[in-house]
Nucleic acid binder design. Structure first.
Lengths: 193, 193
DNA sequence: CTTGTTTCTTAAACTGGTTCAAGTGCTATC
DNA sequence: GATAGCACTTGAACCAGTTTAAGAAACAAG
């Protein structure tokens, strides 16, 4: 198991020594998942925080009418999962699936709890991670209110160019909060110009 | 200066001893603000994280067309401010104003940085704070996509009943992502039934 | 008390995005 | 190489929410 890229990712925010790196690595559970595989399912309490080493995952919410809403894509270097379920140990409301063959690391909640307890550096790492993610989520809320769907699509393509190769358009539409039909129209308008 | 309620708030998540409590309290800068006062303005880099001791604040974004979008209300016990500006020390894109006469504590960024450095407990406190806030923001994104404006209004009233006394309807409309005119219609529909 | 200012409401015309239904194209599998 | 299944597109009817404009109600300040 090669944990060098995840350690490099973490070392962007904190500086781990040998002992900390080894301990952290020992907690990770590596896994390979195929396209379409579920990593988390609605109703089951999430036991792991998920780190994407390669490939692409998506987390989505299925509403009362049975419509899926993509809350997040996660590609190399991202953490993902149903944070509510993970944090409060309650049945998940999001599902997480692989959009392509992917390799991931699972970090079990109990281990993460002990980890941050024992090494304040990791407490810091996750504080920074959540703080940054919160900023991104705030931006997204504002953007959903103030920009048109076309602007949001343009922004999405610029911000996450690597995702277009993995993600079917219908999921991009869902992430943008529109129907696949309307995304289709937007795309046509763009090529016609 | 009485810091007992903010300390009680923090002690819900971590357990501070006398020394830590005193040190933390010594960093806080108390302030009274009147209705309409600005605590942060667009374009000015945010120096403080803001804790609301009493009263009510709102943070909002003004888009290219000059329309305000409320990102958050903050009442007793909440932290607020432009997190992006605060974290990365860049000019604020949000403004923060008092909706009523309020008392707040400012926690300067430099002090907060030193605080979490010196006391891992505070690192944990803010990790938990951001983690919880992130969960709330994820829920809000999903809700904006899957629920109608009327459902969102109902949910808002149930979740934050105390806010209705402070917050003009036009700001509630903005928070919900609709126009004041449409909120007016929703309210009428509700009373007619 | 009254005058100006802001908030809230109402109504009509309008639009960004949805819904429904049908059709095209891809690729997968037997 | 037929059949099936899914992703994507197209178009027409439709609707949730906006825009514009105006009036009513609440409020603050002299």
């Amino acid at each position: 198991m090669n944990t060098s890229t995840i350690l490099a990712q973490i070392n962007k925010h904190i500086s781990l020594d040998e002992r900390e790196s080894l301990h952290f690595s020992s907690l990770l559970i590596p896994a390979k998942v195929k396209q379409g595989d579920y990593l988390e399912k609605v109703g089951i309490t999430t036991q792991n925080f998920i780190y994407v080493e390669s490939g692409c995952l998506m987390s989505y919410y299925t509403d009362k009418k049975g419509v899926d809403h993509v809350i997040q894509f996660a590609t190399t270097g991202w953490w993902t999962g149903d944070l509510h379920s993970f944090t409060r140990q309650q049945p998940a409301v999001y599902s997480t699936r692989a959009l392509a063959e992917s390799t991931v690391f699972y970090l079990p909640k109990t281990d993460m709890d002990q980890l941050v307890d024992r090494y304040p550096k990791f407490e810091r790492y996750f504080r920074i991670l959540f703080q940054n993610s919160l900023i991104t989520h705030q931006d997204r809320i504002i953007q959903n209110f103030s920009d048109t769907a076309e602007d949001r699509y343009e922004y999405f393509r610029q911000k996450y160019p690597s995702l277009e190769q993995y993600v079917p358009l219908k999921y991009i539409a869902s992430y943008l909060g529109i129907t696949p039909e309307f995304l289709s129209k937007i795309r046509r308008r763009k090529t016609e110009r």
